[in-house]
Simulated scan of single mutants.
Amino acid sequence: MSHTIRIAQTDLHFPCAPGQTVLDAALAAGIELPHSCRKGMCANCAGRVDEGLVEGLGGAPLHHEACDPDQVLLCLCVARSDLLISPTRYRRVDPAAAKTFVAKVYKHQMVASDVSLLQLRLPAGQRLKFRAGQYLQVILDDGSRRSYSMANPPHESDGVTLHIRHVPGGRFSAVLPTLQPGDAVRIEGPYGSFGLREDSQAPLVFVAGGTGFAPIKSILDDMVKRGDSRRPVTLLWGGRRLEHLYLGAAVQRWQRLLPGLEFVPAVSEPIADTPPEVFRGDVRQALLARLASLAGHELYACGAPALVTALRQTAVQHLGLAPQDFFSDAFVSGPTPDAEQRRLAAA
């Protein structure tokens, strides 16, 4: 049977169908809760269940090491009774905003040995309306999906640019080398709640690992477009080798147009003749070495789940960042489960 979910200290409530997660039910009702990976790996969706009973989808664990003791992962919670929940934040959205497009490849280039920059164009007259930091899903021939952040800013809405790391054995990684200009690619979006808090004046710290640079690029390009140069910005971008910091021209442009932007490139593998501006070590070590305190800052982290978790711990436990000022987008490889797959998993 369906259950009713209420958000504490509001008059908001929404139905939750059998086998539907709390996050999916909220999104279907036009209420966006914080989320990113939707697989229980990033903990962005962590919130409290103040009243009622829940269980993990398909027996999944409801806790993550980044959760507070009284929090659960709302992306994996299935209601077993009516609920009263306290998410960290929420906002109203249009549940029909995500749309499907048949885009065409405009340009495809290798920008590193294992990274493609894929530019897609939408059909004439169509636009993908999104917020800087959001992602889309590429729909493969077998119906499975892969999620990629838009690297272009929202005003470039007639197409999308994706930064795609080639994953050995990956389903879409096998398709990527064959894509040529004019080829069709089905996409759907936008999705995700990651994005800049524009009502804040706090200094900004962006930390990217590899292709986690993509959503940060969208946010910084959007800041340039809006003429938003009032907040100090520090950008740390890490990779195994220098080639993995593949868009130096974009960083140089921001340094010209966003006064005071500080860029810290970090390379984890030993290299000969390291340029003096390059930090030798991983991006978490660079964060510790280059910033004495994060008190009063906001940190936006993008990359693999293990990196995001390590950055959260480092920023909060060692650099004084307030937990509520840590925002992240965890890049999880593999299929993105949709609502029907989640329902079947719980059946």
Results as ranks from 00 to 15, higher is better:
residue 103 A to D: 09
residue 10 T to Q: 03
residue 51 E to C: 00
residue 146 R to M: 02
residue 125 G to I: 09
residue 222 D to M: 06
residue 168 P to W: 11
residue 268 S to D: 05
residue 258 L to A: 05
residue 346 A to K: 03
residue 237 W to N: 01
residue 71 Q to R: 06
residue 330 A to E: 12
residue 203 P to N: 10
residue 156 E to D: 15
residue 87 P to K: 06
residue 44 N to Y: 02
residue 36 S to V: 00
residue 325 D to Q: 13
residue 170 G to R: 08
residue 170 G to H: 09
residue 219 I to K: 09
residue 181 P to W: 05
residue 109 Q to E: 11
residue 308 V to D: 10
residue 135 Y to T: 02
residue 316 V to D: 09
residue 202 A to D: 11
residue 162 L to N: 05
residue 239 G to L: 03
residue 181 P to F: 01
residue 141 D to E: 15
residue 14 F to H: 11
residue 121 R to G: 01
residue 24 D to F: 01
residue 126 Q to F: 05
residue 161 T to V: 14
residue 258 L to M: 00
residue 43 A to Q: 07
residue 152 N to C: 14
residue 269 E to Q: 12
residue 287 L to F: 00
residue 100 T to P: 02
residue 312 R to P: 02
residue 289 A to H: 13
residue 297 H to G: 06
residue 48 R to S: 08
residue 99 K to D: 03
residue 33 L to W: 07
residue 260 G to E: 02
residue 12 L to S: 02
residue 280 R to S: 15
residue 59 G to Y: 02
residue 5 I to D: 01
residue 230 R to A: 08
residue 80 R to D: 12
residue 131 R to T: 10
residue 124 A to D: 08
residue 282 D to H: 10
residue 69 P to M: 04
residue 103 A to G: 14
residue 107 K to A: 04
residue 132 A to H: 10
residue 225 K to V: 12
residue 183 D to S: 13
residue 228 D to H: 04
residue 277 E to M: 02
residue 300 Y to P: 11
residue 164 I to D: 05
residue 84 L to M: 08
residue 283 V to L: 11
residue 38 R to V: 04
residue 165 R to Q: 14
residue 171 R to Q: 12
residue 186 R to F: 01
residue 139 I to V: 13
residue 312 R to I: 04
residue 238 G to N: 09
residue 272 A to R: 14
residue 69 P to V: 10
residue 206 F to G: 04
residue 255 Q to F: 06
residue 26 A to H: 08
residue 22 V to N: 01
residue 104 K to Q: 15
residue 340 E to C: 03
residue 16 C to G: 15
residue 331 F to L: 15
residue 115 V to G: 08
residue 69 P to C: 05
residue 286 A to S: 09
residue 185 V to H: 06
residue 293 S to L: 09
residue 89 R to I: 04
residue 191 Y to G: 04
residue 198 E to W: 14
residue 169 G to I: 14
residue 5 I to Q: 01
residue 259 P to F: 01
residue 35 H to F: 11
residue 246 Y to W: 10
residue 283 V to F: 07
residue 279 F to Q: 10
residue 198 E to T: 11
residue 147 S to N: 06
residue 318 H to W: 09
residue 152 N to T: 13
residue 98 A to F: 03
residue 326 F to I: 10
residue 83 L to Q: 08
residue 305 P to N: 04
residue 57 L to A: 01
residue 39 K to P: 01
residue 85 I to P: 04
residue 104 K to C: 06
residue 227 G to H: 05
residue 330 A to S: 15
residue 272 A to M: 10
residue 282 D to L: 00
residue 265 P to I: 08
residue 245 L to Q: 05
residue 6 R to N: 08
residue 305 P to K: 11
residue 37 C to V: 12
residue 54 V to Y: 00
residue 101 F to H: 13
residue 100 T to N: 03
residue 89 R to G: 09
residue 317 Q to R: 12
residue 251 V to C: 10
residue 217 K to N: 12
residue 336 T to D: 07
residue 149 S to R: 07
residue 94 D to W: 14
residue 135 Y to V: 05
residue 156 E to P: 05
residue 330 A to V: 09
residue 18 P to R: 13
residue 100 T to A: 08
residue 173 S to R: 11
residue 244 H to W: 03
residue 153 P to F: 02
residue 283 V to M: 07
residue 38 R to I: 00
residue 333 S to Y: 10
residue 77 C to Q: 01
residue 220 L to Y: 00
residue 266 A to E: 00
residue 258 L to H: 01
residue 94 D to H: 12
residue 214 A to I: 06
residue 293 S to R: 14
residue 182 G to L: 11
residue 287 L to Y: 00
residue 206 F to C: 13
residue 273 D to Q: 13
residue 140 L to P: 02
residue 175 V to K: 13
